[in-house]
Amino acid sequence: MILSVAVIAGILSGFLVARWKKEPWQPPALRHAWLVVVFFLPQLLAFYLPATRNLFSAPLAAASLVISQLGLLAFCILNWRLAGMPILAIGLLLNLAVILANGGLMPVSPDAVARLVSPEVLARLQVGERLGTSKDILLAPDAIIFPWLADRFAPPDWIPYRFAFSVGDILIGLGAFILLAFPAGKAASIKKGNLSYVNQPNF
């Protein structure tokens, strides 16, 4: 959920930039947005909806995650020319690479988890198991393939909300911010003598 901060910040920045330029804010002209809705659905069921996420075994959750991210990657490629989208796509690709290399879930080491939970909770966790209903799996550091792409970073201590994130997550947040704050493309075009906006999302 921490990544939603990048979306909110991007929209607010986009409005501020537009106001500074004395232009209306233009949303990015997303193409094939239905792909996002369709391919987010497996993750919605496997990780987010309380009514369904407990029904997913680790292998089924892993399959849902991989299929979903492949579809989302296709959407990113189809929208490659939008500002921020290449950064977001590379972030997604990095996450997908480490997820695929480690069996379908995002690896996280006990050291990283120790920064998120109490020692009592950490003692109850077993290496090799999915962490609750999250996308992460607890693995020993030397068992993680591409460890530098795993969830290994934590926010500064002065931030009370504790979470671990990956290099890919950073790029995804940055890409989403740029996508919304600095949407590319002409603000408007003149078609047949009428002023019409071209940056309308294509659903």
């Binding site: 959920m1 979306v7 997303l30 809705v37 987010f40 995650l65 959407f75 962490l131 979470f163 990956s166």
Partner: peptide
């Protein structure tokens, strides 16, 4: 759509 894209692409974990 952007929220779904970001949430689906990212994989941070919280406590």
């Amino acid at each position: 759509v952007v929220l779904m894209l970001v949430l689906g692409a990212g994989a941070p974990v919280d406590g």
